[in-house]
Nucleic acid binder design. Sequence first.
DNA 1: AATTCGGGGTT
DNA 2: AACCCAGAATT
Length: 361
Amino acid sequence: MSLLSASLLDWYDRHARVMPWRTGPQARRDGTRPDPYRVWLSEVMLQQTTVAAVRDYFARFTTLWPTVADLAAAEDGAVMAEWAGLGYYARARNLLKCARAVVADHGGAFPDTREGLLSLPGIGPYTASAIAAIAFDRAETVVDGNVERVMARLHDVHRPLPAAKRELTALAAALTPAARPGDYAQAVMDLGATICTPRSPACGICPWRAPCAARAAGTAPELPKKTPKKAKPTRHGIVYLARTPSGGWLLERRPDKGLLGGTLGWPGTGWADLAEPLPDPEPPLDADWRQVPAEALHTFTHFHLRLTIMVAEVPDVSGTPPARIPPGDRAVVPRDLFRPSDLPTLMRKAFDLAQGAFDNV
DNA sequence: AATTCGGGGTT
DNA sequence: AACCCAGAATT
């Protein structure tokens, strides 16, 4: 093991705060291994998502579905409902595909190699390495945003991302030790998350202070370089919230592909750029629609959205459980089966504004 | 290589 | 506002 790797593992042993879903160095010495199901679930949830945002979702998922077999047997709509608010909903769809593939094709046990894991839905280069290293003690190299930043600074790499990805991966691989690869992987990421932060890195207390090239050059705070991103345009559309006298709501499940794919929401128009012709208002049914005097404002990865909200009272019809609404379809969900927490954040914003409008009538 | 995927916290 | 986040899939 290199001196660099050893010094980082030493730092990790002294400073690591063990994540709730992991066993730490102490547990490893007891001979226990992390549950691959929990490692997988946490790593998928943590893709582009902060630990604070994930914590409650992870607890809920593992309570509802303690094993991969339990999750594989779950209803699609139930999983989408529990994922609501966490974002990147393709992760939830792939989560189910992956769980069902593990049960159907691997006897209910996750593959224990990087290559085997890579073949599963929703598991890419990072997650495959993370599971292999953390759950199965394989000497694989994890490269996430933290590791990219740490390597760019340690070696003073000025080539911008994503072009520098291959170079940074090679630099990280050269440091990965054969011993304790899972702890080492978490150590590099912890270093990036707590000391080698994007801005104002705490170089003074960094275990790699001495060997860090960017620290010596004074370039640490400006690394890694990144190619500039495009500005976000603003789009807008209309949603229609229909409520029945008994308190039911007309909901639809979006098609599985595209933005918010597979999630529950309100019927509405498409979303057009402000410079383009507005989408034709097409209410889902004939009613006395009233406009709510407030818009739902939301920002996605690559555009801003302003949603006009229309509300109306419509006659009662027999209801449908939300999880039973198939993709592309719509139905009235009875009052006692409707949970606003089942909605993605945009649709919940619209609901909250409409709710206020109904209350004021 | 570039784009499409959420949402919230930090600066 | 811009940037960031234990990225993956698609084009």
